[in-house]
Design a protein around this nucleic acid. Sequence first.
DNA 1: TAGATTGTTAATCGATTAACAATC
DNA 2: TAGATTGTTAATCGATTAACAATC
Lengths: 208, 208
Amino acid sequence: MITNKNCIIRLSRYKNALYRLRDLGFVKVFSDNLADAIGVTASQVRKDFSLFGITGNRKGGYEIASLLEKLGGILGKDRIERVIIAGAGHLAYALMHYRGFEKEGIKIEAAFDIDPLKFAKNAQIPVLPMEEMKDFVVSNNIKVGVLAVPEVGAQRAADTMFAAGIKGILNFAPLRLKAPNDCAINNVNLEIELENLVYFVNVLEKKG
Amino acid sequence: MITNKNCIIRLSRYKNALYRLRDLGFVKVFSDNLADAIGVTASQVRKDFSLFGITGNRKGGYEIASLLEKLGGILGKDRIERVIIAGAGHLAYALMHYRGFEKEGIKIEAAFDIDPLKFAKNAQIPVLPMEEMKDFVVSNNIKVGVLAVPEVGAQRAADTMFAAGIKGILNFAPLRLKAPNDCAINNVNLEIELENLVYFVNVLEKKG
DNA sequence: TAGATTGTTAATCGATTAACAATC
DNA sequence: TAGATTGTTAATCGATTAACAATC
């Protein structure tokens, strides 16, 4: 099993580029075209495919439909992925209303909060008490969650998620979560992203 | 100038860990402690510091206050960084209300949209017409922006930002922006983050 | 001083790229 | 066939880690 995160991210990007090519009516693609589309080398594309046993036709390139099917299989896109959110603040609200997930087969099933004022049991995407998470996650067999609570409650909310059976967390809280070995964490730290951007803007300014 | 993004991200993490140590009353720190705090090796810490000419005391470790000052200087934390947002949807709203930015010296000054229903010229963080971006950015000398509009309008909004003088964009739209050479782009792609998480959850499940 | 930690060089590791034989 | 593209191996590149002399 390949555990290089960058490689898996490239697979997602290939997939997105292939969707666009297919919608434009293309049927086949060369490693060179895909490389241009996502900004890597053709060697990289062929190497990535070869790591997953994806083969094309020498001289004929790759068939887009079959490539999409294989990439979808690897990335788990062969079924709808159901997701919950811990926290029902502004960020959770933004995620619940985000349109981009549906076409990717990602469905947000519910959000959970400790604040009774946030509860909305009958909303399209219900907001439920944190104590109900475990029942919900177990009975819906959900494996992936988003952590969108303030930093101060983040580890506690994460522990609730792990206890409920969540195996992967997309973490927006700006801290390093302690997690069981059999669980995956992806961090999105907006302060650090902006700080990083500021650094590179300053570098480019000095250069130019 | 160091242009390794991971290295700069580590500097941010060191800084955050150092804030916590300082608030706990610590005055000095060894490379080994910092390494544990952010999950890297002590060699990595010393190497990172050495790349930026940061030195400690042989035997005595590093003084936290002076380290924070130096890291702050490198990361541009010696002054408030003023930022605008293109788009005034749910995500922009979440960012405008996010509490984490203030302590990092990041201030969101305004958001811009094309929908007159969103305008709020007198709000604490005003929402202004997209056409006013250039004037606002120029007169406030803003260099960094967040792109939080739907995919379909993203490149156009980015071009507006570049034309206004923005040199760095934190991009939430799920596409590869075309940008001038002297501009920096950091991408946050939530679909890809979740897709990636699903992959690793599946890998861990098969392993276990 | 003896012991411990830095700063830096050298070794290792892993990922990317180049090259090219295989082949359609 | 001749030309072009794949699949894979070897070479390169860059980042991380180990090692250790310098030194407080």
